[in-house]
């Protein structure tokens, strides 16, 4: 196993993902301070508008910089990123806080009873603990608008299902492992759907198709089923 658990204090590593993408790896673990550094560099690279940089992809632990090798060589890009890194070491970007109304009652909390049984706690306690915490949007992936949030309070951690459940609805609030996701589309899933938001996290008709950005802090506000229906 290679060195793991590199903390945020360590120097980031520059790794090549072909001749058209450079990975700036801050570590190999999930850790808010490490993700802060990803976000700071992401903002700095975006702001710098380096010729030849196509787009950046922030993840839990790294920033992938996609570039056009016709305009920009690897070494030149690495030099520019290194300069930006030096300037952003102590920068922390304050997260935007997003309040997300969500209903944790039937018919929207499809798997809440099952989660309560598996964790041996009552449903009200799950909702209370779940909505007390704030969740960082660490990254998108898997499908468009599929946002990975973390981290779930320890006592709510539940292993992923061995076999996927039937498709969940758009806006399903789901948990598994230490993660929380809000889905932008209906999909079969190995996660547990404990609630649903009436917000459309992804809507092509909207000027900003994606409601949230990587780095946002999501706080769920419980609403009852009647309120949910008024929203929709």
């Amino acid at each position: 196993m290679p060195a793991s658990g590199c903390g945020p204090s360590q120097r980031p590593r520059f790794l090549d993902a072909g001749e058209s993408a450079l990975v700036v790896e801050f570590g190999r673990i999930v850790e808010p301070a490490l993700h802060d550094r990803v976000l700071a560099l992401d903002a700095a690279v975006t702001k710098a508008r380096i010729d030849g940089v196509i787009e950046t992809v922030p993840t839990y632990r790294s920033l992938m910089v996609h570039y056009d090798p016709r305009q920009l060589g690897r070494e030149e890009l690495a030099r520019k990123v290194q300069l930006l890194l030096a300037r952003t070491t102590s920068v922390t970007i304050a997260p935007a806080r997003r309040n997300v109304p969500a209903c944790f009652q039937l018919p929207y909390a499809e798997d809440l009873t099952e989660v309560a049984q598996r964790l041996h706690v009552d449903e009200a306690h799950i909702v209370e603990r779940f909505t007390q915490a704030g969740y960082r949007l660490y990254m998108y992936g898997f499908l468009p608008g599929f946002a990975y949030l973390g981290r779930l309070p320890h006592e709510l951690e539940i292993p992923r299902r061995e076999t996927p459940r039937s498709p969940t609805a758009i806006g399903a609030v789901q948990i598994a492992g230490e993660q929380v996701v809000i889905t932008g589309v209906a999909m079969t899933t190995g996660w547990y759907m404990i609630g649903r938001t009436p917000l459309r996290v992804f809507d092509l008709e909207r000027e900003t198709p994606f409601l949230f950005d990587v780095g946002d802090e999501i706080v769920f506000e419980p609403i009852d089923a009647a309120t949910f229906e008024r929203f929709s």
Binding site: A17, S20, E25, R28, V57, T59, G141
Partner: peptide, 11 residues
């Protein structure tokens, strides 16, 4: 298993 990171074309 690694903690997820970015994927380029051709990975």
């Amino acid at each position: 298993d690694i903690v997820s990171d970015g994927i380029p074309l051709g990975a």
